[in-house]
């Protein structure tokens, strides 16, 4: 059951990341302006963050959808959502009226305050799904299960267990 929930969490968060990043990729300058509009980061790193964010989002989304390094990606995803929630809250608290730039766009808009609560709620929901993946990274149809050998101590069904029983039997208990 948990593995199915994990799959759903992966697909939702991963899908959102892919869409959000892909919409921003064609307009690098727009992404820089969207980051700058928050007036949080120092100007010296605003361009780098603006250029990097869409790329990181797409890469993160693809990994989540594929189920590759799920726990690591879950941590990264959760951290980014926390950053966005903090950013939007800070913009709201300081009375800035900006488009969150979550799915492209960004910059000043007129009716931003009406949108902030919904944007934060959405990010909190996605944050919870990401945290789920950090706690229970094993999920259905993940690449992790295929490419990564099971971690020591993890119960792997099949021959491993058989051996275990065998040894005990042979130890003549």
């Amino acid at each position: 059951m948990k593995q199915w929930i994990g799959l759903v969490a992966r697909l939702i968060t991963g899908g959102v990341w892919i869409v959000a990043g892909a919409l921003k990729l064609p307009d690098p300058s727009g992404s820089v302006r969207a980051v700058r509009a928050y007036e949080i980061l120092p100007e010296s790193i605003v361009p780098t963050v603006g250029y990097a964010l869409p790329v990181v989002e797409v890469a993160l989304g693809v990994c989540l959808v594929l189920g590759l390094l799920t726990r690591v990606m879950g941590v990264l995803s959760a951290l980014l959502f926390v950053a966005f929630i903090v950013g939007i809250s800070a913009a709201w608290a300081r009375g800035l009226s900006i488009d969150c730039g979550c799915f492209g766009g960004g910059g000043e808009i007129t009716d931003a305050t009406a949108k902030y609560p919904w944007e934060i709620a959405r990010d909190v929901g996605l944050l919870l799904l990401s945290v789920w993946l950090v706690i229970w990274p094993r999920s259905r149809w993940s690449l992790d299960a295929v490419v990564l050998p099971p971690r020591a101590g993890e119960v792997s069904p099949g021959p491993g267990e058989g051996e275990e029983l065998d040894v005990e039997a042979q130890q003549g208990r």
């Binding site: 690098p28 780098t48 250029y51 990097a52 490419v147």
Partner: peptide, 20 residues
């Protein structure tokens, strides 16, 4: 996997900044 991802991401970010 991490190494491959890093290469792809760094290359793409560089392309993005070039586009800027």
């Amino acid at each position: 996997v991490v190494g491959g991802l890093l290469i792809v991401v760094v290359a793409a970010v560089w392309l993005q900044s070039r586009a800027g």
